[in-house]
């Protein structure tokens, strides 16, 4: 189900959270809203979900104007960063909640909840209370709860933000696989560029209430629309007044056309990677080499080299 956001604006007092935002999300895609904290991405998600009212503009879900439709009638699934588990209800009842509200027959509810618990691998936890689950399990329960009502869109607000690195990584892969199975139009908010690059079909980079760029992960990474996007998606360094990725710097031991002379000021090995800090007079760029590259070049501190950007 497609989502069209047109000219949406939202302020909190004098703070502009969203400034005239337009966005179209295609049917069945997994889209990431990526940006720094306070950039407006969560506000946009909450406006799509109906938890927030825009000051101006419209939201259309599946072609219908949903701007003033309250969240309880939008049929969206929403997953909160801190799970928003119903603490007094068991896992089973949490997942069944939306179906109970919709007054579905008991048998249907039972079947559907079982199916979803299986999907999120929580069958054996059906009778537990949320406080007896780990963070990752709670978030899977929240996801099952959101999916139970067969939402037209699934919205996830920093869904893995409160989890530790290991669980985060697992859940990320799992979300990708889940989406491939379920195919519901999904938007998730994250400030972690690695997460966005890894999971999403499409990236929407948001900063200071504006959309900076929309595209596939490869597009956005390789052809950033501006310095902000470039800087946000990965490490950057400056050479000849231009931002480049440190792994796109080529190091030469003899002079060549379009190169900048520099002196090696530092060499640091971090696992398979070697970090090279350089002094090029006006600039102090740094480069990222593989161990093999660094060994071939036989680099040493104080050595004179020539550098150029390959992209």
């Amino acid at each position: 189900m497609s989502i069209e956001v047109s000219s949406v604006g939202k302020r909190f007092g004098s703070f502009v959270a969203l400034d005239d935002v337009d966005l179209t999300v295609a049917d069945g895609r997994l889209t990431a809203l990526l940006g720094p904290s306070g950039g407006g991405k969560s506000t946009l998600l909450r406006i799509i979900g109906g938890l927030e009212q825009p000051d101006s503009g419209t939201v259309r879900i599946n072609g219908k104007d949903a701007t003033r439709v309250p969240p309880q009638r939008r049929n969206v699934g929403f997953v909160f960063q801190h799970y928003a588990a119903f603490k007094h209800l068991t896992v089973y009842r949490n997942v069944a909640f939306g179906l109970e509200i919709r007054k579905r027959p008991k048998a249907e509810i039972r079947a559907r909840v079982q199916e979803l618990l299986a999907l999120v691998h929580l069958e054996q936890f059906a009778d537990r209370l949320p406080e007896q689950l780990s963070g990752g399990q709670r978030q899977r329960m929240a996801l099952a709860r959101a999916l139970a009502v067969e939402p037209t869109v699934l919205l996830l607000d920093e869904p893995f933000g409160a989890l530790d690195a290991q669980v985060r990584k697992e859940l990320r892969d799992w979300l990708r696989r889940l989406h491939d199975e379920v195919h519901v139009t999904t938007i998730f908010v994250t400030h972690d560029q690695e997460e966005a690059l890894e999971v999403a079909d499409e990236l929407v980079v948001i900063n200071q209430g504006r959309i900076e760029q929309v595209g596939t992960p490869a597009d956005v990474y390789d052809k950033p629309a501006n310095d902000f996007v470039m800087g946000f998606l990965g490490p950057v360094t400056r050479l000849a007044g231009r931002l480049v990725r440190p792994h796109d710097l080529e190091i030469l031991t003899s002079e060549a056309p379009d190169t900048t002379p520099a002196e090696v000021t530092g060499l640091q090995r971090i696992g398979f990677e070697v970090r090279l800090t350089l002094d090029a007079g006006a600039e102090q760029p740094w480069a990222q080499l593989t161990r093999g590259q660094a060994e071939d070049l036989r680099l040493a501190i104080g050595q004179h080299v020539w550098i150029r950007a390959t992209r």
Binding site: G50, L51, F97
Partner: peptide, 20 residues
């Protein structure tokens, strides 16, 4: 948050009050 979650799941104000 719990009330908002219930809201998105379709619960009206009275249902949210009683159930959450």
């Amino acid at each position: 948050e719990q009330e908002q979650a219930a809201r998105v799941l379709g619960a009206n104000a009275w249902q949210r009050f009683l159930r959450i």
